[in-house]
Structure formats: C-alpha cells, structure tokens
C-alpha cells in the first residue's frame, strides 16, 4: 500500500444481485487511513451485505473494490483470507461459534492470522475486556451470555489485534450505555494509528456524540449509496 492511498475504495462497484440482494447500482466510497465513514442504514441485513461487499465477499458485475491498494477480485483464497484478517468487524448476528468458549471466539481471528505468542494475545484481549467492563474474558459459550455481554465481547473482538479497518455494524441497542464512551475512545485510538472506520448506524442518536469526528456520512438505501452532508 502506497502513502496517501485510500484504505478502502469502492469505484463504481456493482454487486451481483443474485448473491447479495443489494441494488445492482454503482457504489462509490473512499476511506483514507484514519478516516471515519458513517453509513446510515435502517435495514440490518442490507448493512451486513454492504459490509460483506466491502470485505470482498460478494462478486461484482462491474467496477472494483480495493482494500489497502489490493483489488479483492484479483486475489486468491489465501491472500483474500489474509487481507480479511486485517479487518476488525462487529456483526449483529450469527458471528459466534458455540463450539468454543467466548474467550476463544474473541481471540480466534488473531490466533489464526498471526503468530503472536498466546500469552500476549490473551493479555491484550483481557485488557480490552477490562475496558469494556469484563472482569476478564468470558469463558462460557456465547449462547450462555446475555445480549449486553455479547455486544461487549463483539467490541473486544473487533478491536483486538490492531486492525487496519474497522467495519462496525450497529449494536447500539444492545451495548450498555456505560460502554459507549470506551467504544468511542477505542475507535479514536484506532483512527489515530491510521485505522479506517466504516460504521453502520440505524439512527442519528447512535453516533450523535461522535458527529464532529466523522469525515464521511452516507446513506444506504434500496436504490444505492448516497452522500449526506457532514455537520
């Protein structure tokens, strides 16, 4: 990735309708390192599909999507997976494996993509857990955790491992109020080291406190992605 190159760039990207259900219209978006783009979208599933599109999981009929200067469509499986490992993601649903404890679910991407010592991964995940109000890392399986604890665990998992891009689906309805400030602090800290943020929100209330720090504001509708005025 060259200096001053966009971190994530959608250039007239037209997603396959059969695969995604997204409107086959050209989508354009450009996020530079350290920038925060807020995407207003009332439909959770559409937001998740757009997040998948940005992660190179949906084939395109036209245009291109580049992450860290690399076009998703030109990469092979191993490269795709390695690049996706640079993305920290909060998903609203279906993202927890009940085969493992929540602590392993949190550390799984980091353990899979890096060779960092296990103790160091545990330490950094535990520190993040403390920030989000956990006494340590939850070891029970995800299906035994409350919605609030799962939302906190999702935050820990997204921020652990210093990702280059954060793709955050809206969990403001389940994240406890006392965790909103740590969430915004962690997001700001990540941006300070060059991480881009793609933040999906359902309502203005979810990002109201962070409004001044947002660089791009767009709305994802049935018809496509439309820029909004940033206040």
């Amino acid at each position: 990735m060259t200096a001053n190159a966009p971190l994530l760039e959608l250039r007239d990207a037209v997603p396959s309708f059969e695969e995604s259900g997204l409107m086959p219209a050209p989508y354009n978006l450009r996020i530079m390192p350290g920038e925060c783009a807020v995407i207003d979208c009332r439909d959770f599933e559409r937001a998740a599909m757009f997040a998948d599109l940005c992660s190179g999981m949906i084939s395109l009929t036209q245009g291109s999507i580049k992450f860290m200067g690399l076009d998703w469509s030109t990469l092979r499986d191993r490269q795709l997976n390695a690049l996706r490992g640079r993305i920290g993601r909060i998903s609203r649903s279906s993202s927890w494996l009940n085969l493992f404890g929540t602590h392993l679910n949190i550390m799984l991407p980091h353990l899979y993509h890096t060779t960092d010592p296990f103790d160091r991964v545990v330490l950094s995940a535990t520190e993040l857990g403390h920030r989000f109000g956990f006494p340590g890392l939850p070891t029970s399986t995800p299906d035994r955790l409350s919605g609030a604890d799962l939302a906190r665990a999702a935050c820990v998992r997204a921020f652990v491992g210093r990702p280059d891009l954060l793709v955050l689906e809206d969990i403001s309805d389940t994240l406890p109020e006392e965790n909103i400030l740590p969430f915004l602090e962690m997001m700001t800290a990540a941006r300070d080291r060059g991480c881009g943020v793609l933040w999906f929100v359902r309502s203005a209330a979810a990002w109201h406190e962070y409004r001044k720090a947002v660089n791009i504001h767009m709305r994802l509708l049935d018809e496509g992605l439309f820029p909004m005025r940033v206040v």
């Binding site: 997976n81 993305i87 279906s94 899979y112």
Partner: peptide, 17 residues
C-alpha cells in the same frame, strides 16, 4: 447448522477458511 445459521459466512468474513 453453522452453514444454515450464517456462522460459516461469519468465519469467512474474518478471513478464517
């Protein structure tokens, strides 16, 4: 069940094959 529930897709989204 993981495929039907979307967990496998979530794994792929995190770069886990």
């Amino acid at each position: 069940m993981m495929v039907l529930g979307g967990e496998v897709r979530a794994l792929q989204a995190r770069g886990i094959d």
